[in-house]
Simulated scan of single mutants.
Amino acid sequence: MYEPTVARLTYRALLGRRRAAILFILPALLLVIAVAVRALVGVDDQVAADVLGGFALATMVPLIGVIAGTGAIGPEIDDGSIVYLLSKPVKRPTIIFTKLIVAIAVTMAFSAIPTFIAGMILNGNGGQVAIAYTIAALVASIAYSAVFLLLGTVSRHAVVFGLVYALVWEALFGSLVPGARTLSIQQWALSLAERIGTNGTITSDVGLPTAVILLVVVTGLATWYAGQKLRSLTLAGDE
Rank of each mutant, 00 (worst) to 15 (best):
L23R: 03
A146H: 07
D79H: 13
G80Y: 12
I25A: 15
S184A: 13
S155Q: 09
Q228N: 12
G152C: 12
L150C: 07
R156F: 11
A118F: 05
M60C: 06
V154N: 08
P4H: 06
A112R: 07
Y165L: 09
L163G: 10
V51K: 09
V47W: 01
A236R: 14
D205K: 00
V154Y: 10
W188N: 03
I67Y: 08
L52D: 06
I135A: 15
L221V: 15
Q128W: 09
T94A: 14
T182A: 10
G227P: 08
I202K: 04
L235N: 13
G119Y: 06
L215E: 00
L235I: 15
I25T: 13
V35S: 11
T210Q: 13
I104A: 09
R8D: 12
T115C: 12
A48G: 14
T234N: 12
L57D: 04
L40W: 07
A48T: 13
A143Q: 03
L15I: 08
V218P: 00
I142F: 15
S145C: 06
G207F: 10
G126T: 13
N125M: 11
G227A: 10
D205Y: 01
F116S: 05
A20E: 05
L122H: 08
I22R: 01
A48E: 04
K88S: 14
R19L: 11
I117Q: 07
F161A: 14
L214E: 12
G69A: 11
M120V: 15
V90D: 08
Q228A: 12
V32M: 14
A226F: 12
V217Y: 10
L208I: 15
F24N: 03
V106Q: 03
G207H: 14
P93F: 10
A20H: 01
G54W: 09
V168T: 09
L190E: 00
Y84M: 10
I25D: 00
V168N: 02
F55C: 08
I202D: 00
G74Y: 06
T182I: 13
R195N: 12
A140R: 01
E239T: 10
Y144S: 01
L30Y: 09
L233I: 15
Y165S: 04
K91I: 02
T182N: 11
G237S: 13
T10E: 06
L29G: 05
V206L: 06
E170G: 03
W188S: 00
